[in-house]
Design a binder for these strands. Structure first.
Length: 427
RNA sequence: GGAGAAAUGGCCGAGCGGCUGAAGGCGCUCCCCUGCUAAGGGAGUAUGGGCUUUAACUCCCAUCGAGGGUUCGAAUCCCUCUUUCUCCGCCA
């Protein structure tokens, strides 16, 4: 959510900023509501004031034993007026917050203009794209040959966009997750967390998935309303909802492995082959809660932490700064890390690292006590995949394949595979 | 799942329908005092909004788990919900 103060005082500026996202803010409607709100709030509070002071007089008169009836007659009628005013006020406020909750974050000034992924800005590439003296297979063919990835079983047990992993490949995914967790714990100083995989509406509202993107979620229960988490960002960031964090405790650095569930409602026909786009996938998520002045720097560091995993696995990737049109609703600035997939001959997203600044914090009422002002102030929140485990598995398979269709185990993963160096096809 | 009890500031804890945004204690901050320490004395110590076309102060409004209701007036009375605790049952 944006600062209501900003919406009040610099509405035109906000509108102009949001144009970069192709988001059209109905400023006139909002401004009209704001004018109404102000007027109604003033009358409401004036009425409340009259009632309060009148009631106080009655109390005092009663204590003295005076006749109270005339006073009571005087303020009795206020009740109805107040009720009307209060209802009207609540109504206007509800309308305003409905609009406000649907407004995306203002982009950082460093975010380039652009409409779609094509306008994203490549920052740099890392690693050498492997040269094969044979035609590299994609992970679907490799997985079939290695008898470790089975999409038919996913369909049988659940539906399309689910998968069953077995044997060494299932273990390889777990090894990848272990490597990531250990790296973030030991090298990057994160704290491991274990969280609910179902989240309530309030939590999802806090991180920005609700109310606007309910269609992307799986709802698991109606009362209470619970949703399968689309990312660990939701439960982990909500750790600080409605809290005032001690300044000395910042930054909070959490790492969390979790499954993620996405309905992929808008993705019919996209990435139907393979496990690029699944309803359920594993991810290791990094979340940081920081002082506002630190978030810019933290964003760079957090992205670096995700990159370090790719480097440990020696997977070629590129770092991309998302353009205005491709940056997510809650984010002010996002770097994507895209890993090279030989099977597709393309770079594909494997991590997304975002600085939300105070956008989520305001929805979450996540604050810290600034020692300089002594006042509670909003924190900044950031997160990034470090990394998506399913896609990492794919990337390892495709980049480490040989002509026989076997997959070498990257050195960094061998300790987690009981020393196994090569995954070979089996009968 | 059944029965009962409870929910008040950073924490503990009081609170008869009116003078209670809230006693008292602890903690914390500042000041005073005493070589140091300990002890002692004094003052202060919730959040959000009205609120910006200077800001601060004063002022006004809201908030005692949440939401409704009764009333001129609710922390206090009534209803619903949530959560926590105790006992029973069930369970990895």
């Amino acid at each position: 959510m944006l600062d209501p103060h900003l919406l009040r005082t610099e509405l035109d500026h906000v509108k102009k900023e949001l144009m970069r996202r192709n988001f059209v803010l109905d400023a006139d409607t909002y401004a009209a509501l704001e004018t109404q709100r102000k007027a109604i709030q003033i009358t409401t509070q004036e009425l409340q004031n009259q009632r309060n002071s009148g009631s106080k007089l009655i109390g005092q008169a009663k204590a003295k034993g005076d006749d109270v009836q005339p006073l009571m007659d005087e303020i009795q009628h206020l009740g109805d007026l107040l009720k009307t005013a209060e209802t009207e006020l609540a109504d206007v406020q509800a309308k305003m917050s409905e609009i406000a909750e649907g407004i995306p974050n203002i982009l950082d000034s460093s975010v380039p203009n652009g409409k779609s992924e094509e306008d994203n800005q490549e920052i740099y590439r890392w690693g050498d794209v492997p040269a094969f003296n044979f035609t590299p297979k994609d992970h679907v063919d490799l997985g079939e040959k290695l008898k470790g990835i089975n999409f038919e079983l996913g369909v049988k047990i659940a539906s399309a966009r689910f998968v069953v992993l077995t044997g060494a490949l299932a273990r390889l995914q777990r090894a990848i997750i272990q490597l990531m967790l250990d790296t973030h714990l030991n090298d990057h100083g994160y704290e491991e967390t274990y969280v609910p995989f179902l989240a309530n509406a309030e939590s999802l509202r806090g991180t920005g998935q609700l109310p606007k993107f309910e269609a992307d979620l799986f709802k698991a229960s109606d009362s209470p309303a619970l949703y399968l988490i689309p990312t660990a960002e939701v439960p982990v960031t909500n750790i600080v909802r409605d809290t005032i964090v001690d300044a000395k405790a910042l930054p909070l650095k959490y790492v969390c492995h979790s499954p993620c569930f996405r309905s992929e409602a808008g993705a019919y026909g996209r990435d139907v082959r393979g496990m690029i786009r699944q309803h359920q996938f594993e991810k290791v998520e990094l979340v940081q809660i920081v002082r506002p002045e630190d978030s810019q720097q933290t964003h760079e560091e957090l992205t670096q932490h995700a990159e370090n995993i790719l480097k440990k696995l020696k997977l070629p990737y590129r770092k991309v700064l998302l353009c205005a049109g491709d940056t997510g609703f809650s984010s002010s600035k996002t770097y994507d890390l895209e890993v090279w997939l030989p099977g597709q001959g393309a770079y594909r997203e494997i991590s997304s690292c975002s600085n939300f600044k105070d956008f989520q914090a305001r929805r979450l009422q996540a604050r810290w006590r600034n020692p300089e002002t002594g006042k509670p102030e909003l924190v900044h929140t950031l997160n990034g995949s470090g990394l998506a485990a399913g896609r990492t598995l794919i990337a390892v398979m495709e980049n480490y394949q040989d002509a026989q269709g076997s997959v070498r185990v990257p050195e960094a993963l061998q300790p987690y595979m009981g020393g196994l160096k090569v995954i070979e096809g089996r009968v």
